[in-house]
Design a protein around this nucleic acid. Structure first.
Lengths: 208, 208
DNA sequence: GGAAAATGAAAGCAATTGCTTGCATGGCTT
DNA sequence: AAGCCATGCAAGCAATTGCTTTCATTTTCC
């Protein structure tokens, strides 16, 4: 009895993905697009390929679905710090790595982030969760920059604004691409953006 | 007959603000907070201090209210370019001025911007309007930077990423403050942020 | 094979919501 | 004084929506 009935094909239908997961996935997609109110349980059930009543067998209320979805944001800080674990050849390498980590983190959670942005005012839990995110990223980078300064790899200065500018760049790119649906080359070529932004943050545009 | 019945006190009540304006204002506020769907006509009427039926006497449908509100975004480009009209002592002054213009522009329209962000997926007109905004700001600044380069005040380089970073910073600050409700000193002291960000964009953090 | 678990199908209910209709009221203009 | 105009008030309607109940069916586990 080490492994009680985990892994079975969802009841009565020959599909692989668990019903519960399909519901969550559909809800995530719809809420991100249409907002919490716009994602009606009928629409969710349709997209999930499930009867509406099945939703309420898995989740007590509609809010419970939202709460379940929000759990994805919690371990952001650890992931960001983890991405900065190793040794770096120089500051620029560190910046590029951090940019990549952060941007991927945003893209991976794009639906939930959109839900947060859209529902920020309607659900207090969402605000609380979400508000921690933007500044966490700035903080973690700020700490790393300070570390580099103390090791003599960077001149001493207030790293806050620098971190803010760097993080902002990728958040903006993220929003432009995934929320507004903008399709501009400067944002589309991610690797180049990491590189250019790191260069500018270090050298400024006075010395190219 | 030069001036037909403009200026009268709103029908039957001793208040200054026109009914129509009060409705628009209430709708703007609610839609920004709760989204289009969350801003019910009942709530709008309450906040406006007006009977619900009055709303439909002024606007044919609820969507018509939204469309009216969106008109505020149209003249953004002109305003941005206008803020860059005069002569500047140096590049840094130009950047600070542009940052101030852009940030104020965002704050002045914060409700409508929130509506756009929240409703981007539900209303095609909104997407169209809104999608033009972020890159307009980047473009205008990019052009100005190119101009400075051609005048020999800046070394030649691709100004796109620089402009993107600069604009991003203030958009992020704007979102953090007005959407998420964050209250951090680095964002709260606007003038200092303009100054620091301009400095970093020009010199980088390698030479402070 | 048989019980239990999971799902589907149909119906519906109470609350909400965008919007309408009909009528009364009070101020403004002439 | 008279008529117009903007508004308030009460009622309501059709559609939507979150959620429930009942019953039949299929799948999984032992």
């Amino acid at each position: 009895m080490d492994q009680p009935h985990i892994e079975y094909v969802s009841g009565g239908r020959g599909e692989e993905q668990e019903t519960r997961e399909r519901i969550l996935s559909a809800a995530r997609q719809l809420m991100a697009q249409k907002g919490y109110k716009g994602a009606t349980t009928r629409k969710i059930s349709e997209l999930a390929g499930v009867n509406e009543v099945t939703i309420f067998r898995h989740f007590k209320t509609k809010v419970a679905i939202l709460e379940e979805l929000l759990k994805d944001i919690l371990e952001v800080r650890e992931q960001l710090e983890q991405g900065l674990q190793g040794e770096f050849a120089n500051v620029k390498e560190m910046l590029i790595t951090y940019a990549r980590t952060y941007y991927h983190l945003l893209v991976e959670r794009k639906e939930i982030l959109m839900i947060c942005i859209v529902e920020a005012d309607n659900h207090p839990e969402v605000v609380k969760l979400f508000s921690s995110l933007p500044m966490t990223a700035v903080e973690v980078l700020g700490n790393k920059l300070t570390e580099f300064q103390e090791q003599g790899h960077l001149p001493k200065s207030d790293p806050c604004t620098a971190a803010l500018m760097f993080i902002s760049t990728f958040f903006y790119a993220f929003m432009a691409k995934y929320r507004v649906g903008l399709d501009v080359p400067i944002i589309d070529d991610e690797e180049q953006l990491y590189e250019h932004a790191s260069e500018i943050l270090l050298q400024g545009i006075r010395r190219v």
